[in-house]
């Protein structure tokens, strides 16, 4: 972990624990996330990687009985401070979900949704953001002539791109992705991975994935979670070629072998 210079860190997580009632889902996780890199979080089902992802934009707050200890420092401030503006936090740290979840509204209304909830109503401005967001996810050419169409009529891949565009429209700094390709076929997955590569130039991406090849392909850094514990965290290359922890090695070789 020494090679990760702290100057470029955008998020620092300090002894973060999450409890669901009596159950401890995360055990004192400690890590630093680098700006404009793709960080992959891997591990078996129920290991806490999705829980961890959802602590970063405080989506875990929605779960009844969830309790968080420790700190997540983003832009110099602990987001678990009581005075944190949650709406602003979630604008700056966007999220893409496992299943594409466009709203049952038009394509246009989907993309500008975030702008509207943050009080933006200027049509010209919204159209400008719409254009840039759809452009960024390579959907503009496909959809420019049917922006008023129902978003639910799009293919799964288009829907997921639209959901990414929806996040980009509000101008986030970090994008959290919770298994964004698990509902997509392999070619669509490959194209979404290409997209992540493009987005990395401007945004910090943290992706939870079940698919280890995907983690190896797209990420710069990788964290391995097991039973709520961050077992190992480091450069993806190193994690996949010479893991330091025997448990990481078991998982990686077990899945490949």
């Amino acid at each position: 972990m020494a090679e990760i210079t702290s100057r470029k860190n955008i998020i620092e997580v300090k002894s973060l624990s999450v409890f669901y009632g009596q159950f401890q889902a995360l055990k004192s996780v400690q890590l630093e996330l680098q700006a404009r890199k793709i960080t992959a979080l891997i591990g078996p089902s129920g290991c806490g990687k999705s829980t961890f992802l959802r602590t970063l934009n405080r989506m875990n707050d929605l779960i009844e009985g969830a309790r968080t200890e420790g700190q997540v420092v983003f832009d110099g401030k602990n987001i678990y401070d009581p005075e944190t503006d949650l709406l602003e936090l979630r604008r700056r740290i966007g999220m893409v979900f496992q299943r594409p979840n466009p709203f049952p509204l038009s394509i246009f209304d989907n993309v500008v949704y975030g702008l509207r909830v943050h009080g933006q109503n200027d049509r010209r401005y919204m159209e400008e953001r719409l254009f840039r967001s759809l452009q960024a996810v390579n959907l503009w050419e496909e959809l420019k002539d049917r922006l008023e169409a129902d978003a639910l009529c799009l293919t799964g891949e288009q829907q997921q791109r639209l959901c990414i565009a929806r996040v980009l429209a509000v101008g986030p700094e970090v994008i959290l992705m919770d298994e964004p390709c698990s509902a997509l076929d392999p070619t669509a997955t490959a194209r979404i991975e290409d997209l992540m590569y493009q987005l990395k130039e401007k945004y910090t991406i943290i992706i939870v994935t079940h698919n280890m090849q995907q983690a190896a392909r797209v990420s710069d850094n990788t964290g391995y979670f097991l039973l709520g514990e961050l077992v190992e965290f480091g450069q993806t290359n190193q994690i996949f070629t010479s893991p330091r922890d025997a448990r990481t090695e078991d998982y990686i070789t077990g899945r490949f072998g």
């Binding site: 989506m59 709406l87 979630r90 966007g94 979840n101 709203f103 049952p104 909830v117 996040v167």
Partner: peptide, 11 residues
């Protein structure tokens, strides 16, 4: 998933 998507956008 609709509610989550909306809340996650800061609504």
């Amino acid at each position: 998933s609709y509610r989550e998507g909306s809340i996650a956008l800061g609504a």
